[in-house]
């Protein structure tokens, strides 16, 4: 019998990881909901952002959380440019073409990172890396707590952008009625690229929150991209709050799965959920368009 306090601590850890997963998945979900494209390069973009945080810390001594204002505009611009000039022109009409282009992009980014940075796993050490915070019976590392709270805040900001700003309205209009949006004067290509930029920027936020308690390597995006897909599918492709709750759920499942089944087999729970949802409820748990 496992001690309940260990289970509670493990669930709390899972919740913290899950909140970051949710943030990564929200970027993916936004891109899917608006553009109806499955972005395979999402994990690679997160990986690049993680390297960004890493080098800003190692070379310039910039705190990972303070790297956010630097990284956010860079990631946004990169996402905008990638969509406008690489993905959109090549994607064309077919679903599969976009899948292939983003797969190609993922291959390029990941392996460029491999050539440039080797396959070493890198971590950073900050003054607060090992500070612990007591939450009820459980101890949570401070960076994990920051990741949890930061992701929640970022999620709310993202929601406000999509729901409450003109930018968000334009993006939602384009998502729903492309032609009509164009007729009322919305530049659809611009709006699509902006949606992609926001998706990429949310990965950059996730990267800043993640690195103090995580690591970076050229392949780090792989795990995230599959987990993010699982969350997006679980929550319902394109559903905002679906992705959020899905993220928290997957984080907890992974953490508890690891506790009861062991580190390696614990991951199977995620994919089992993924396959089961795709087969039995492809619209997801909260399946409703954006």
């Amino acid at each position: 019998m496992v001690d309940p306090s260990i289970v509670a601590a493990s669930a709390l850890h899972g919740l913290a990881t899950g909140a970051v997963y949710a943030l990564v998945a929200l970027g993916l979900s936004l891109v899917y909901g608006v553009l109806h494209i499955v972005n395979f390069a999402h994990g690679s973009l997160l990986m690049l952002a993680l390297y960004g945080v890493y080098f800003l810390h190692e070379r310039l001594g910039l705190d990972p959380y303070l790297a956010l204002p630097v990284l956010l505009p860079v990631a946004g611009l990169a996402g905008y440019a990638l969509h406008r000039w690489v993905i959109a022109p090549a994607g064309g009409a077919r679903d599969e073409n976009v899948l292939l282009v983003t797969l190609g992009l993922a291959l390029v980014l990941e392996n460029l990172a491999l050539v440039a940075f080797r396959s070493d796993t890198r971590t950073i050490e900050t003054a607060y890396s090992f500070s612990m915070v007591a939450l009820g019976p459980a101890l949570l590392p401070l960076p994990k707590l920051v990741a949890l709270l930061g992701s929640l805040v970022a999620t709310l900001v993202l929601w406000a952008i999509v729901q409450k700003t003109d930018l968000g309205r334009a993006i939602r209009a384009v998502a729903r009625e492309r032609e009509a949006a164009r007729l009322v004067g919305i530049d659809t290509r611009h709006a699509f690229a902006l949606a992609f930029a926001i998706g990429t920027a949310s990965s950059a936020v996730a990267a800043c929150l993640l690195l103090p308690s995580y690591y970076v390597s050229p392949q780090v995006g792989h795990g995230f991209v599959l987990i993010a897909f699982t969350i997006v599918v679980l929550g319902g492709m394109g559903s905002f709050w679906g992705a959020f709750w899905g993220g928290l759920l997957i984080g907890v499942v992974e953490s508890l799965g690891g506790l009861f089944l062991g580190e390696s087999l614990g991951q199977i729970g995620i994919f089992a959920i993924f396959i089961a949802v795709l087969l039995f409820r492809p619209t997801g748990l909260l399946g409703r368009p954006l």
Partner: peptide, 25 residues
Amino acid sequence: LAGGATGANLVVYGIVLILIVRFLP
């Protein structure tokens, strides 16, 4: 060309894939 660096061939594969989908479906 990349002096045997792992991953160099996959970078090229990725670029070829993007170019083929774009220009030569």
